[in-house]
Deep mutational scan, measured.
Amino acid sequence: MEVRTIKVFTTVDNINLHTQVVDMSMTYGQQFGPTYLDGADVTKIKPHNSHEGKTFYVLPNDDTLRVEAFEYYHTTDPSFLGRYMSALNHTKKWKYPQVNGLTSIKWADNNCYLATALLTLQQIELKFNPPALQDAYYRARAGEAANFCALILAYCNKTVGELGDVRETMSYLFQHANLDSCKRVLNVVCKTCGQQQTTLKGVEAVMYMGTLSYEQFKKGVQIPCTCGKQATKYLVQQESPFVMMSAPPAQYELKHGTFTCASEYTGNYQCGHYKHITSKETLYCIDGALLTKSSEYKGPITDVFYKENSYTTTIK
Rank of each mutant, 00 (worst) to 15 (best):
K307S: 14
V188T: 15
L283W: 01
A250I: 07
K201W: 14
C227F: 01
F32L: 13
D165N: 15
A142P: 04
S79L: 14
L163F: 15
Y155Q: 02
F9S: 11
F148S: 04
D13N: 15
Q196T: 11
E2R: 10
T103I: 09
L118G: 00
A40I: 11
R66N: 11
F217A: 15
R83V: 03
Y269W: 15
Y137W: 10
I105Y: 07
L200R: 07
T5L: 11
T314G: 10
D303F: 00
T278E: 09
G194N: 13
S50N: 12
K201S: 12
E239F: 07
T192R: 11
E144F: 05
M24D: 07
D62V: 07
P224G: 05
T258W: 01
H74I: 00
D23G: 11
K106V: 13
E253S: 11
K293F: 10
E168W: 14
L88G: 02
V206Q: 00
Q30K: 14
T169S: 05
D165P: 01
T192M: 09
M170T: 03
K255P: 05
T198W: 10
I45D: 14
N61P: 10
H273W: 02
A250D: 14
K7P: 12
N111P: 00
G101C: 05
F128R: 01
H256G: 12
S246K: 00
G299K: 03
D165W: 01
D287C: 00
P131H: 03
I277L: 06
L290C: 11
E215W: 03
R167Q: 10
A87F: 00
K307I: 10
K95T: 13
D62W: 05
R139D: 11
V236M: 08
S310D: 14
P60E: 05
L283T: 08
Q31G: 09
S171Q: 14
L17S: 12
M85V: 08
V22Y: 03
L254S: 00
Y172E: 06
G272M: 00
Q230W: 13
N129R: 15
M26P: 04
Q98H: 09
R139Y: 10
N178Q: 11
N61I: 10
V3T: 12
G164P: 04
T313E: 08
R66E: 10
H48E: 14
A177P: 04
F56W: 07
C112T: 05
D13H: 09
M26K: 13
L119F: 00
V236T: 03
T120W: 01
T116G: 12
A205Q: 00
F174L: 12
N129G: 08
H51E: 08
F56G: 05
T314R: 15
S50H: 14
Q197G: 07
T55K: 10
E264C: 00
T43E: 02
F70N: 07
T103N: 05
H273T: 01
V221R: 01
L173M: 13
K255C: 10
T266R: 06
G53I: 05
R141D: 03
T64F: 09
F148T: 05
R139S: 12
V189T: 11
N16P: 03
F217P: 00
I277V: 08
T19P: 14
K7D: 13
D62N: 12
N157T: 01
L37D: 14
T198L: 14
E296C: 13
F80V: 03
L291P: 10
Y265V: 02
P131A: 03
P241K: 08
Y57T: 10
P60R: 02
S50L: 14
A262M: 03
T10P: 02
F56T: 09
Q98K: 12
Y252S: 05
G39A: 14
V206P: 00
G194A: 07
I223R: 03
A132M: 07
T314M: 14
T260N: 00
V21S: 12
H74L: 14
Q122F: 03
L102C: 05
H273F: 02
T76N: 10
N157C: 04
I223V: 14
E125M: 08
I315K: 15
K183L: 10
G288D: 06
L114G: 03
H48V: 11
T282L: 10
T211K: 06
D165I: 04
Q30S: 13
L153W: 05
F128W: 10
N100V: 07
H273L: 01
C271H: 14
N14Q: 11
K293W: 08
Y84N: 03
M209W: 15
K127N: 12
Q195Y: 09
D303I: 02
P97R: 09
C182S: 09
E215A: 06
S25F: 10
A247N: 04
N49F: 10
L235T: 03
N268Y: 08
L133Y: 05
N129E: 08
H273G: 00
L126Q: 04
T314E: 15
T159H: 14
T10C: 14
D63R: 07
T27N: 12
V236E: 07
L121S: 06
E144R: 08
L121H: 02
T258E: 15
M24W: 09
H18Q: 09
E308R: 07
H74D: 07
G29E: 13
S295Y: 04
D41W: 05
N61E: 05
K54N: 13
N49A: 12
Y306M: 00
V203C: 10
S171I: 11
Y113I: 00
K106Q: 15
T64M: 10
K7R: 13
T192N: 13
